[in-house]
Design a protein around this nucleic acid. Structure first.
Length: 827
RNA sequence: GGGCGAAUAGCUCAGCUGGUUAGAGCACCUGCCUUACAAGCAGGGGGUCACAGGUUCGAGUCCUGUUUCGCCCA
């Protein structure tokens, strides 16, 4: 078999993707007897186009999947889509130009299903074009009936375990999305604002407070000063009058009032921020909620009813001014809490919401997280810090349409909750009748369906359960579950790959569900990737300019293998910038693999592993170098460090195998005179083994070109269908050869010196040499001497001799003790 | 304000538990058509490893502090 002159990724990559799929190479249970390695793949949120950051983290995880498959595991590698909830709703609202509230629940849900389906089809095409070794038969969508059933089942289980409660509680509220949100969905933003100095009245005198939220004056329920603040000592416990609204509020002490800020007096409203809530709870203050769920002022703000918060602020500032109650204003920039999905400033509200109690089991959750192997290790600290700092139970209700419904009804008379039975799941209580006719507690007939839907994380946190088909008739739980010898506990799955920004959400919630629902840890290993930085965050490139294309265009232009190589070009967990030059290295490697294999396969045409062979010292050197590289690459992959592996294998391939070994062994491989057949067979053996090993170890990163080469020569000889289900290299012990390793490295130093001479004299590497003189001590020469014929071959020298004294014409080499002089024969 | 990370060649990044002269790719310079590869090969220039201290026989690596940047949180 002779390899074509050039490798064409544009033709080969789609061809292999199709072939793999048809042959079911990546199918789960293709080798049912092998131990299972299960992956809790991140289901991408269907909220818009895929970006290059997705490529980055998915490839990194996928490379690890390929590694374990070659290590002989029965890899369970599913793919899901997260298409329920707010992100998808917002996508639909944006694309269709509608508001959920306007079109109604049923029509809106239909639009969501249609649009997300279209996106998912596009996504699948894209991920296939990247060569992901996913089993596409194993997939789910978080809105499909099974996912809804498992998600509702998880809720019911928590309910029965006493973990669920409904409470009128201060809630983070997004006035734009009209829904309660979780702490995890809040992020900071720097907003411009104004600090207003407002006069309250006490005993006929002004009391000045500073606030950025004058529209919350009607919601004011107290004033606070710091206990050490002498200025207000005399007035503590008295009641001040709120301007414009004339209700009275107590003046109290609390450590959290900052004496340095403004006048040292601060107003407490229900609710402006989390400090207000803390005060409200600790001091048992009144509740005055002044706006409704659409963000409009209500009857508690007489004169401002119906106004939005912003308008109300403007009007109140005007009124304060005209009433002489505004004593100063100062523009400031401060950080505010915004909803991460829409960027709107968060408000606080009191509403009836469903919660999962978690604050009492923080320690258990931290302990469970501690049993997971986090790569990189420091990511566990982020997880722990997040859990330690939790201040709220998990608010799981959302006042939206498109998502998983709560499987329950409430008695209108007494509030008793009626749960759906497991046989009813998935259930939408707004269309299905409850399992009982009347309230089991009070007997009333008016059972009201829960209209809220669950937070998307309620379902996303079930991904291990979706994969395992938790408490379904075809549950895989028993097959997947495994214990760790050291850590004891049972784990549901092996690997959770995800990016670092959602440790506090996805990883955290999944661990919560694992612990509460099943009493297990969801996975043994968490592999946390960084982000690909989009060009607008990178510096402006002078040369070519930044990449501004969609990922599919990048793959089209750069090839899937080069894109994958790029995604593996730095350490796990770190972010990297996307620049066009970043893809060159991968493209070069693909070409080099092809060319080197083309040569090797030509020389290996008559390779016979059973023919008598004799390994030269340089062959042993190559195999020793290979064994060394393979050991290190394997360890790296085991720790999810794909880059560490590439960094070891590629130099071995390029430098040891191509630049040196092949050059040195060429004449033997050609069967030139002076070499016997056994010696040629020895070289063939070393070449065959190391090239096949290199292809295998690079196969996870560049699966297409390695498969192409493998299929054209190795597949038949090795008796395997695909390199991707072939076995991972395990060099035999005898390849580890310290003597050959050291001696070979010394010989390479001589070659380096010889090349330096030729380069300095600006002649071709093929230029003949008369005598090649090696200056070194006797001991070193003893080690180099066995390579005399190789040195002669690669230098094109007539003879190689040892001297003890180096003259001026000798050049230095990498090894300080060795100097080299070469007598060039130039016509 | 707290936590985590980063700062190494012009650019993008490696550098494991401290150990010869700090590496790679791109870019740059000088050459070479060598029976796999010019999409290549050989050679070369370029770094006070952010700054200041400390521990050590020895520090890019460990400790303390400072500065700048990123992420997460308050």
């Amino acid at each position: 078999m002779k390899l074509p002159k050039r490798y064409k990724p544009k033709e080969a990559e789609p061809r292999w993707q199709k072939a793999w799929e048809e042959a079911g190479i990546y199918r789960f249970d293709r080798f049912p007897d092998r131990p299972i390695y299960s992956i809790d793949t991140p289901p991408p949120t269907v909220s818009g186009a895929i970006h290059i950051g997705h490529v980055f983290s998915y490839v990194q995880a996928e490379v690890i999947a390929r590694f374990w498959r070659m290590r002989g595991m029965n890899v369970y590698y599913p793919f899901g889509f997260d298409d329920n909830g707010l992100p998808s709703e917002r996508l639909v609202e944006k694309e269709k130009g509608v508001k959920a509230t306007d079109v109604g629940r049923e029509a809106f849900v239909r639009m969501c299903l249609e649009l997300t389906q279209r996106y998912e089809d596009e996504f699948k095409v894209f991920w296939r074009s990247l060569g992901l070794s996913v089993d596409w038969d194993e997939n789910y969508s978080t809105i499909d009936p099974t996912s809804q059933r498992i998600s509702q089942r998880s809720f019911l289980d928590l309910f029965e375990k006493g973990r669920v409660y409904r409470k009128e509680a201060p809630t983070l509220w997004c006035p734009e999305c009209h829904t309660a949100i979780a702490q995890a969905e809040v992020e900071d933003a720097e907003h411009g604002s104004v600090f207003y100095d407002v006069a309250f009245r006490l005993d006929g005198k002004d009391l000045i407070i500073s606030t950025t939220r004058p529209e919350l004056l009607p919601a004011c329920v107290a004033m606070f000063a710091h206990p050490s603040d002498e200025r207000y000592k005399g007035i503590i416990g008295k009641k001040a009058t709120v301007p414009l609204f004339d209700h009275e509020v107590p003046i109290l002490l609390d450590e959290k009032a900052d004496p340095e800020k403004g006048t040292g007096l601060v107003m407490c409203c229900t609710f402006g921020d989390t400090t207000d809530i803390a005060w409200w709870q600790e001091h048992g203050l009144d509740t005055r909620i002044v706006f409704d769920e659409t963000g409009r002022m209500n009857e508690l703000a007489p004169g401002y009813e119906g106004l939005g918060l912003k308008e109300a602020r403007g009007r109140m500032v005007e009124d304060l001014k005209s009433g002489g109650l505004l004593k100063g204003e100062e523009p400031i920039s401060h950080t505010v809490n915004v909803h991460e999905r829409c960027g709107t400033e968060i408000e606080f509200s009191v509403a009836s919401q469903w919660f999962i109690r978690v604050l009492d089991i923080k320690d258990e959750i931290i302990e469970a997280g501690g049993k997971v192997d986090w790569y990189p290790n420091y990511m566990e600290i982020r997880f722990r810090n997040w859990v330690e700092n939790l201040k709220w139970d998990w608010c799981v209700s959302r006042q939206r349409y498109y998502g998983v419904p709560f499987p329950l009804w409430s008695c209108k008379a007494c509030g008793e909750v009626v749960l759906a039975t497991d046989e009813m799941l998935p259930v939408d209580p707004t269309v299905t009748s409850p399992p009982v006719d009347s309230c089991p507690k009070c007997g009333a007939f008016d059972l009201e369906p829960e209209r809220d839907i669950m937070d998307t994380w309620m379902t996303s946190s079930c991904t291990p359960f979706l994969n395992i088909r938790w408490r379904e008739p075809d549950s895989k739980l028993e097959r997947f579950k495994k214990a760790d010898a050291e850590k004891g506990s049972e784990f549901l799955m092996d690997l959770r790959p995800q990016a670092h920004d959602i440790i506090r959400t996805w990883a955290y919630y999944t661990i919560v569900k694992g612990v509460l629902n099943e009493g297990k840890i969801p996975w043994r290993t968490a592999m946390i990737s960084g982000h690909g930085l989009h060009p607008d965050r990178a510096k402006i490139s002078k040369s070519k300019g930044p990449i501004s294309h969609a990922p599919s265009e990048i793959i089209e232009e750069q090839s899937a293998d080069a894109t994958r190589y790029w995604a593996c070009s730095n350490r796990l967990g770190t972010d990297t910038i996307v620049a066009e030059e970043g893809f060159d290295a991968g493209k070069r490697l693909v070409v080099k693999l092809w060319n080197a294999s083309k040569f090797a396969i030509m020389r290996l045409e008559d390779y016979d592993p059973d023919a008598p062979r004799e390994l030269a010292l340089i062959d042993r050197w190559l195999l020793a170098r290979f064994a060394n590289a393979a050991g290190r690459a394997t360890r790296s992959f085991e720790e999810c460090e794909y880059h560490g592996a590439v960094e070891v294998v590629e130099p071995f391939f390029w430098h040891c195998l191509c630049d040196n070994y092949i050059e040195i062994a060429k004449k033997r491989l050609y069967g030139d005179e002076g070499y016997d057949e056994a010696s040629r067979r020895g070289a063939q053996y070393a070449l065959y083994q190391s090239l096949l090993g290199v292809l295998k170890m690079l196969a996870p990163v560049v699966p297409h070109v390695t498969e192409e080469i493998h299929s054209l020569y190795f597949a038949e000889r090795e008796g395997v269908e695909s390199i991707h289900v072939s076995s991972w290299p395990e060099p035999p012990a005898e390849w580890t050869d310290a003597v050959a390793l050291e001696a070979g490295d010394l010989a390479l130093a001589v070659i380096e010196g010889m090349r330096k001479v030729k380069s300095t004299h600006k002649v071709s590497v093929a230029t003949p040499v008369g005598t090649l003189r090696v200056a070194c001590d006797d001991d070193t020469w003893t080690k180099i001497e066995p390579f005399t014929s190789e040195l002669r071959d690669v230098s094109n020298a007539q003879s190689v001799v040892h001297v003890t004294e180096a003259g001026d014409e000798f050049v230095e080499t990498d090894v300080a003790a060795i100097r080299v002089a070469a007598e060039l024969i130039v016509e």
